[in-house]
Design a protein around this nucleic acid. Structure first.
Length: 281
DNA sequence: GACCAGGATTGCT
DNA sequence: AGCAATCATGGT
């Protein structure tokens, strides 16, 4: 396919989104040229911004199939408008946040397996060390396509032993989780793409059966793997801290104090979470 | 040096 | 069902 041209009928914070992507050293982001290279299967697709916040426009090069095009549209939230979401939250107690961060999309990870691995690695670690570990993981076991790092295949990770990861500063428990989940995927027992058509509840139930995948990781899969719109990880400390700030509280709010607002924020709970995270970046 | 971090599991009441 | 200890290590 030739170059694709895309125009969006809604406001979109491309530069801000790119800056967030650039926080992960594995992402091939070029802020000067406003491009990012995305590895899909064996080819690299380049996204470039040619528009503005008010009138977003983009070019896509390297797309080889309609399926890849749809995948890109989905990853970057080009296929659904952000306007109804802004309108919805303008009537809620998060109005200020949604004014301030208007046009922030949910950008999903580039592969479902990458999402799960990244989440397990990030569990309980501060962001900077978590990124170090993730980068080390990908650059040791993954591969490069046209200069862009790609996560390894589950089969490759399934073959590792715990000590290999331990020597790379993974805890043995984290190493067990990573190898165990990768093994289940490699053997076909856990098929993430097939699972992705199920309901949120079913997916959480299925995923949390595996050692190393708890509620936080399962919810992260729904939100940043699949881009599901209506969930709020109440157990996430970052969200608790953000709400404490927004509501000007002495202490972090309890799960009950948070979930009391779910009716008000639904059916876009995920955006509430995303904009709250942005509030503490 | 304590305490926390975009948690999860295990074992104990 | 609910709590506490445990896990490894870097950041503050």
């Amino acid at each position: 396919m030739l170059t694709q041209f895309i125009k969006l009928p809604f406001k979109y914070q491309y530069e801000e989104m790119m800056t967030r992507l650039a926080l992960d050293p594995l992402n091939a982001v070029d802020l000067e040229n406003k491009t990012v290279k995305i590895p899909l299967e064996t080819s690299i697709i380049t996204l470039k911004s040619t528009g503005t916040f008010e009138e977003p426009a983009f070019t896509l090069t390297g797309v080889e199939s309609d399926e890849q095009l749809q995948k890109m549209m989905s990853i970057f939230h080009f296929n659904r408008s952000l306007e109804p979401i802004s309108a919805h939250f303008a009537e809620t107690n998060l109005k200020g946040l949604f004014t301030k961060f208007d046009g922030t999309p949910i950008v999903t990870d580039f592969s479902l397996y990458a999402n799960i691995m990244k989440s397990i690695i990030h569990q309980q670690l501060n962001l900077s060390f978590a990124r170090t570990l993730t980068t080390r993981f990908v650059q040791t076991f993954g591969r490069q396509v046209e200069g862009v790092w790609v996560y390894p295949k589950p089969e490759d990770i399934a073959r590792l032993d715990v000590d290999t990861l331990r020597n790379m500063q993974f805890s043995s428990r984290k190493a067990e989780y990573i190898i165990g989940v990768s093994t289940a995927i490699a053997e076909g027992e856990l098929h993430l793409e097939r699972l992705s058509t199920e309901t949120d509840e079913t997916i959480i139930k299925r995923l949390t059966k595996y050692r190393g995948i708890g509620p936080w990781t399962a919810e992260s899969f729904l939100l940043f793997g699949l881009g599901r719109e209506n969930l709020f990880p109440v157990a996430d400390v970052g969200l608790q801290n953000s709400l404490k700030k927004v509501w000007q509280m002495e202490n972090k709010p309890s799960k009950e104090e948070i979930s009391a607002h779910f009716d008000e924020w639904s059916p876009y709970l995920s955006y509430a979470a995303l904009y709250l995270w942005r509030n503490i970046e």
